[in-house]
Computed example of a mutant assay.
Amino acid sequence: MYNITLIPGDGIGPEVTDSARKIIDATGVNIKWDVVNAGASVYEKRGVLVPDEVYSSIEKNKIVLKGPITTPIGCGFRSINVMLRKKYDLFANIRPVKKINGLVTPFNDIDLVIFRENTEGLYSGVENQRDNDTAEAIKIITRKASMRIAREAFIYAKNNNKCKVAVVHKANIMKLTDGLFLDCVREVSIDFPEIELQEVIVDNMCMQLVMNPSKYEVIVTTNLYGDILSDLCAGLIGGLGLVPGANIGNDIAIFEAVHGSAPDIAGKNLANSIAVILSGAMMLNYIGEKEKSNLIINAVHKTISEGKYLTKDLGGTASTTDMTDAIIENLR
């Protein structure tokens, strides 16, 4: 039996995580769910964004399935998600982006994975107010963080029969910070001579991805660029509701969708739960349940390709419950 922490989150979080939980349980995998919560809804009731029991559960179980969380404006952390990634040193943010048959999109052959360094760079939010008219952000890039995310990307490529890894940077201008990141990726690539290293400046990568995304298989990049590129790539396959994510550290892993809490449709049984479901599939693969993971992925793809039970954002009229039930049926 696996002990796994479940954080429902805010907005549509409880609905989409409940959908994912039902589908995961339908595979027959033996999981004891430890349900704890954090975010705006908890803050309203208890005056704390992340209760102690959330930390205790994460540290005990090591594996987490998490819904989207809203950080209230004007109090607490800049971002609960960023705080958890830094607290537990979840250095690898992994976001697969794959075209699903049945959805009309500009490209039919997108199948790439983004490896985003998750703990430093501009996105980590180190800022100073120098005076009333001047604010500054500090971009910190370290050899340690750069080397380990690069190695994760190349190991993934090797283990999954990928031929290319693209490093995305702006070292032509940010010669010290992005230059260090680029040098680290180059250094790691030497250990993987069978894998081609593609070096792409970030603005050019944005253009390439909307013109010829099939050129890329694995992308490794810094924190902010990775966040931007993963949203761009999500748009190429039908939206954020289809993109799962994993935050991996040395001994703790948190799996979550890329999208936010969508409070405007919360509680209406309208939310697309695919991204969290696929995040759950990534989680099962991570804990060694690859067969059950593939069952879920195949059932999701079959449900979408059939086109009968699609939520509104995917061009259909189905409810969250309808889509969940259809995926469970296709598991069989």
Rank of each mutant, 00 (worst) to 15 (best):
R95K: 11
A246P: 01
N37Q: 04
E127F: 03
L236H: 02
T317V: 15
L49S: 11
D111Q: 01
N298E: 15
K139M: 06
P68S: 04
G121K: 05
L65R: 08
K98S: 13
V54L: 03
I110T: 09
S305Y: 10
G125Q: 03
N160E: 01
E329D: 13
N247D: 03
L112M: 14
A137H: 06
K66H: 08
S279M: 08
D227A: 12
I4R: 03
G241A: 08
D34M: 09
M83A: 13
I190V: 15
V16Y: 06
E291V: 11
E329Q: 14
N330T: 07
W33T: 07
R143S: 08
P106N: 05
M205C: 04
I31E: 08
C206V: 13
C206W: 07
P96K: 06
E59M: 02
E53C: 03
Y156H: 02
N204Y: 08
D10R: 03
G125I: 09
L182I: 00
I254W: 09
K158G: 02
T177K: 00
L112A: 01
N132K: 14
G316W: 11
V64I: 08
V218N: 05
K215R: 14
P193C: 04
L49I: 12
D231N: 15
R151L: 15
V82N: 07
A153R: 10
N204F: 07
D313Q: 05
K158L: 09
R85K: 11
A318C: 11
I138F: 13
C75G: 09
N108G: 13
D111C: 01
G315W: 12
I31Q: 06
M323K: 12
N330W: 10
A145S: 15
N212E: 12
F107M: 09
A40I: 13
K175V: 03
N159L: 10
D325C: 12
A253I: 01
D183I: 00
D191L: 11
S79M: 11
R85F: 10
A171V: 05
P263R: 05
I195M: 07
F192R: 00
G226Y: 01
R148G: 04
R21S: 09
T70Y: 06
I63C: 01
G239H: 06
V126H: 11
A253P: 03
N101E: 15
I297F: 11
D25M: 08
Y225D: 06
I228S: 01
L224R: 08
D18N: 15
S79E: 06
A266L: 04
L278H: 06
I141T: 12
V113A: 06
K302I: 09
S57G: 03
R78C: 05
V82S: 04
V200L: 14
L240D: 07
L284E: 06
A271E: 02
T17F: 06
E53T: 05
K268T: 02
P193E: 08
G316V: 10
V50N: 05
V202F: 11
V42M: 08
G238W: 01
N132V: 08
D52M: 09
E329F: 14
D131C: 10
L331C: 15
S279E: 05
S261C: 02
G239R: 09
F255C: 02
V36N: 02
Y88K: 10
V218Y: 05
D183P: 00
A150V: 00
D203I: 07
A137C: 12
Y225I: 14
S56C: 10
I7H: 10
K175R: 15
F255E: 05
G316A: 12
E306T: 09
N250L: 08
K45E: 13
A262E: 03
N37S: 13
N212A: 12
